[in-house]
Structure formats: C-alpha cells, structure tokens
C-alpha cells in the first residue's frame, strides 16, 4: 500500500518511535493518540487462530472478544476478504450483516467501526480495528493514516517474529495467546471430556457461551476451575433451540457455528 503524503510519513515515524518505547500491549494506546479516534484494537490472526495483541479500552476488549466468540464482525471479515471493512454508522444494514456484533457495538456506545487487514507485500497477519463513538466516516487523512499504521504494525510484528527462535512465537507477541490461554486450555480439557478434537471442543464452548449469554472467557474460566463440564447439564443454561443466526461469515476459519445441540447438553 502506498504511503502517500508527508503527513503519513511523519506519522509513521512518530508511531514507530512510540511503539519502540511501548510494549506491544500499549500499541493500541499509541494508535488512539495518533489517529485521534475513540478506540483501537490489534488482533494477530493466522492458521485459523486469532488473538488480541492489545485493546485501547475495556469496551473495545468486549467487542473484540465478541467477534472472537461468535466468529462474526468486521475483524474476521476484513481478515478473510483482505480489504478494509467499514460501517460509518450502525443501522439495519449492519444489524443484518453482523447480527451479534452490531447490537453489542451500539450497547457499548460505538457509532462507527473500521477494520483494516494487517497486510503488507502479500503477508496477512491480522487486523487493525478502529472504533468511533460518534457515527461518521473517517476523514481521508485518517484513512491514509490507518493505511500507514497498517504498514508499520505489520512490519513490526513480522520483524519481531523474525527474531524469535524457530517455531516459537515472539515474546512481544505472546500476549495475543496468553490473553486467551485459558480458552485454549479449556478447549483441551473439553476435548478429553468429550473425546473430540480441540477445534471442535472450542466450537462447543462457543455454542455454550452463546446459549448461556456468557463470554467465551467466562466459560473457559469455569471449565479450567472445574466449575463447569460440557458433558453434563449445567444450571442456568437455556434449553437447546436458540435462534438460528446467519453467522459466522462464510468461510471463517472456525466454520459452522454449531447446531443447538452443541450447547453443552449430552
């Protein structure tokens, strides 16, 4: 992507300086400052996996988590399509497009969302999400700045990974997994309990979280603490048959939101 204009170059340099002084968890704060937007999230994605590298505030965390839980929203859409995805306002169109994400975004006070694939020279490594509390498009300048940040963040992530021992995730990027370590541990537990592959166990957990109106993290925590087993009925879980929704987005790496019988009952 072309880095056009002196302003974007100045911003790239300033951002790179900010990043060099900040651990990866602080990049989103640097992003908010330089883009002059309400919120920023950076997600590492690849090989069907996704992890948040950072979020600028708790409401962004909720929205990024929700997209991870149900596999629907601007973030997976931008990653899969490889082009920026935007909603300058939330209305009927976004409600149809993202039936789970859109209402949650509104409930968390968001007016617009913009997702940019972290892609450079053909390498696609995640998504930069930008949130605005008021509706409206980004200015041309902000859009150009986002494209510049995409270049800087992508190159920084790849450069950090270049220095990691072969096969290991760079220490600076480890938060992307460490943040959801319990989710993955729980999927291993459920895999043994149900005798299914870990990927399917994760789908079962997602279904359970959705049916019980909990976050995936809360479900994972309960499983790891052995307060919850998915091979037994748990109190407070609605019976199977929650409304069929049109997600996840076609071809999302965790395909097929499970059928209602995946809701944790055997």
């Amino acid at each position: 992507m072309p880095v056009s204009g002196e302003r974007s170059i100045r911003l790239a340099v300033a951002f790179a300086r900010g990043m060099s002084r900040t651990p990866a968890t602080g990049w989103c704060g640097v992003g908010v400052e330089f883009l002059v937007v309400s919120g920023v999230g950076i997600t590492v994605m690849g090989g069907g996996a996704a992890g948040p590298l950072c979020v600028s505030d708790p409401s962004v965390a909720i929205l990024e988590d929700a997209q991870f839980t149900v596999g629907e929203g601007p973030c997976p859409e931008a990653f899969l399509s490889g082009v920026p995805v935007s909603a300058a306002s939330f209305g009927q169109e976004t409600a149809r497009r993202w039936p789970s994400f859109a209402p949650l975004a509104v409930a968390n006070g968001m007016g617009a969302v913009f997702a940019y694939p972290l892609a450079s020279a053909g390498a696609n490594v995640g998504v930069l999400s930008v949130y605005q509390r008021s509706a409206g498009s980004l200015t041309d300048g902000q859009h150009a700045d986002c494209l510049t940040l995409v270049e800087v963040i992508t190159e920084t992530m790849l450069s950090l990974q270049d220095t990691a021992p072969p096969g290991e995730l760079a220490r600076e990027l480890d938060d992307a997994v460490a943040y959801r370590a319990e989710v993955y541990q729980a999927s291993g537990i459920v895999a043994v309990q149900l005798g299914v592959p870990a990927a399917e166990a994760l789908l079962r957990m997602r279904a359970h979280a959705f049916a019980a109106d909990q976050t995936l993290d809360a479900v994972a925590s309960a499983i790891v603490d052995r307060r919850l087993r998915l091979d037994e009925p748990a109190p407070g879980v609605p019976p199977p048959g929650f409304p069929p929704l049109g997600f996840p987005a076609p071809g999302f790496p965790t395909p097929g939101f499970p059928t209602p019988d995946g809701g944790g009952r055997s």
């Binding site: 590492v44 490594v125 096969g167 995730l169 997994v177 993955y184 999927s187 870990a198």
Partner: peptide, 21 residues
C-alpha cells in the same frame, strides 16, 4: 514470514490446548 508467524501462533495455542488435555 507470514507462514512463520502463523505457525508460531498455532504452535503456541496447541501447547495451551495440550496443557488442558
């Protein structure tokens, strides 16, 4: 480079899953 990052990410995740198992 993209492949390396993907591989490292999924490897890291598989270790957490294995811990759970």
């Amino acid at each position: 480079r993209e492949g390396n990052l993907q591989h490292a990410l999924t490897s890291r995740i598989s270790i957490e899953q294995a811990k759970g198992m």
